[in-house]
């Protein structure tokens, strides 16, 4: 269980957008040695760890890496926030822009993939002690998917407002 703190671990306040810099930093987000990989590695190493101190460190460092992930996200966001699609086109950052600014569908879809993965686990698993929490997690994915549906509806409601990317007619004529 985690609780979100509505603050960065360390302030990020970037005045000048710079997509080239962003394209260099982005590997720290989801790259093979990025913050996300680090967090997952530490947090997943905890379970069979026999030493409480190390379990504590893995837990607390793994959690802190998530704070770092958010800081990298903030850095990337602030580095690219005022760039127009024209300014981004032709830069190394263009592919990231394409992947991450299309709206809530991809997020929603990843929840669906997680749910399908739980479906497969449930098919392969016959231990009720395992199935029970797995079913709970699968239920949560469904709830998340429902909330993403709500998010999509909210996004759609705002579609005619300025600066909304998904299928804003002013961009896709």
């Amino acid at each position: 269980m985690w609780t979100y703190d509505r603050k960065l671990q360390y302030p990020v306040k970037i005045k000048t957008p710079n997509h080239n810099l962003a394209s260099i930093i982005i590997s720290q987000l989801g790259g093979p040695d990025g913050e996300l990989a680090a967090s997952m590695r530490y947090l997943n190493q905890r379970y069979s760890m026999p030493y409480g101190e190390v379990t504590g460190i893995l837990t607390d460092v793994g959690t802190e890496e998530l704070a770092h992930l958010e800081m990298v996200g903030a850095i990337l966001y602030q580095l690219t926030r005022d760039l127009s699609p024209d300014e981004i086109a032709g830069t190394p950052f263009a592919t990231y822009f394409v992947d991450h600014t299309v709206g809530v569908y991809p997020v929603s879809a990843s929840g669906q993939k997680a749910r399908v993965t739980y479906d497969n686990i449930i098919r392969l698993c016959d231990d009720p002690d395992v199935l029970d929490p797995i079913r709970y997690l699968r239920e949560r994915e469904i709830v998340h998917y429902q909330r993403f549906g709500d998010a999509l509806r909210i996004a759609t409601d705002h579609m005619n407002e300025k600066n909304f990317y998904a299928i804003n007619p002013s961009y896709d004529q």
Binding site: T3, Y4, D5, R6, K7, L8, P11, V12, K13, I14, K15, E70, G73, A74, Y77, Q78
Partner: peptide, 28 residues
């Protein structure tokens, strides 16, 4: 001023969803 966690929304409004968000320059 702004709840830190979902357990701290002590005001009369649901301030949790109000800007600025942590990654925005205005919050830092």
């Amino acid at each position: 001023e702004m709840p830190l966690t979902v357990y701290d929304n002590t005001g009369t409004d649901w301030d949790w969803v109000k800007a600025p968000w942590p990654w925005q320059p205005e919050a830092n």
